[in-house]
Write a protein that binds this DNA or RNA. Sequence first.
DNA 1: CTTCAGTATATAACATGTTCTAGCCACACG
DNA 2: CGTGTGGCTAGAACATGTTATATACTGAAG
Lengths: 251, 251
Amino acid sequence: MSSREAGKNQRRDDIVGAARALMQRTGDMGFSMRSLAEQAGVSIATPYNLFGSKQAILLAVLNDDLAEYQQALDGLQADEIEALFEGIKLMSAMLAREPEFYRNVICAVSRDGPEFRYMVGGPRYLIWKRLLRQATQAGLLDSQVDPDAFAIASSQLIVANVLEWAQGALSLEEMTARNHYGLALVLRAIATDASRAKLETQMRSAEATLQQLWRQVLAERLQRGELDAETRELLADQLKYLNPTNDEETP
Amino acid sequence: MSSREAGKNQRRDDIVGAARALMQRTGDMGFSMRSLAEQAGVSIATPYNLFGSKQAILLAVLNDDLAEYQQALDGLQADEIEALFEGIKLMSAMLAREPEFYRNVICAVSRDGPEFRYMVGGPRYLIWKRLLRQATQAGLLDSQVDPDAFAIASSQLIVANVLEWAQGALSLEEMTARNHYGLALVLRAIATDASRAKLETQMRSAEATLQQLWRQVLAERLQRGELDAETRELLADQLKYLNPTNDEETP
DNA sequence: CTTCAGTATATAACATGTTCTAGCCACACG
DNA sequence: CGTGTGGCTAGAACATGTTATATACTGAAG
């Protein structure tokens, strides 16, 4: 590698690192291309030369983290069905470690165009498919179903939940519970006799968690007062569908 | 209503109408707030006075259309399970009527914040719940499952598909097939003996449609040449996950 | 009819993503 | 050791969403 390219890679890393630092430090705002350039010690034109767009930079940042997650998934040792549930727990744990950071980057990346979907949907979903295949081979899932169609539908549910969380429509707990529920639900659809009981249990457990979360949030709302009885019922319904995090008071 | 408010409402309608016209005519671009103000014959400040933001205007536009859809859903006469499938077909038909328009407005509206989710997730998802309840009462779905949790998961699948379509990651046909598949899948998870066979059929049918679509797109790609055999397999997998519409040649 | 409050208007301004232009410097090659 | 060129830089410029300000109009109250 010529020293020219070395310098280029250096700058590339500087920029990605600066993006990471900015988002972790300042939360959503403060991450303008101008502040990024300043933080990285380069001109504003350079990120465009090296990456092409703001979104591409964020994709690069997220890509690093997803690689880590993928590695953790690979090292997972568990019963075939459990492994799937462990996989989504692992993801929740990752998001919980730096929620502000992930919220921002996921939000920004998924905004413009389908690149985010390509990223989580391309090679990465092969892991998901592998886990499903293993479960099928272990006789825990109906071998008749098309593995691709199923893998797509199930991963879509999870991605949708993550996106809602990133957009601030869900608390992390509810996102996790929804993932748990959704996964149990779709797996139950293709369960075999060997796994049906276990998935039933998983589903009930997730259901209970969700119901408790809803009750909790609803109670807080009711306690905070200010609602006529007619909207109360509608509110209860809406709460079940979307459970916005109440961040209005945080500066 | 005083003539003051009348004038205000008039302007409001003008703006919503102008937004509609602009998006139908020019496709995505051309819908800047400045061009909107010009088209509506008002100052650029007025839309902000009356709506507050660009997104709010687009929400108002979409809201009209969703109301229509809701009405069509209400008038649906079919077997309880069939009604659910008819519901998503109806949606596909609506999107197919003015694809460019819906693509733009859905994309723009879902971009910033969770307002779009609130819109489709609030009162509107009650209809969905009602259809599910009817099916349950008819003995076609397991009455043990929490209707809210299930309604959320299932509607999420569908919304996710629509969003992917709006972002250009899916053809309308594939979106429809995925909705069909996803709905059959989750319903199968809570089917009763009375409905299991029928849902099995639906699922197989959707599977077949999906597989055919994938084969078709894959064949086109292969025919177009330029791919070494090693990436061929990966491509096949990716194609199954995401099937981008190939619009590169349209201006 | 006068007056006044509310509201639209014109216009400027600001922040942001992105692009363009011109210059400049260091590295590779002769 | 020259020299030229690729690639970075500074900075301006542009389009866009949004906000602020000052002005003009207009319908309603006295």
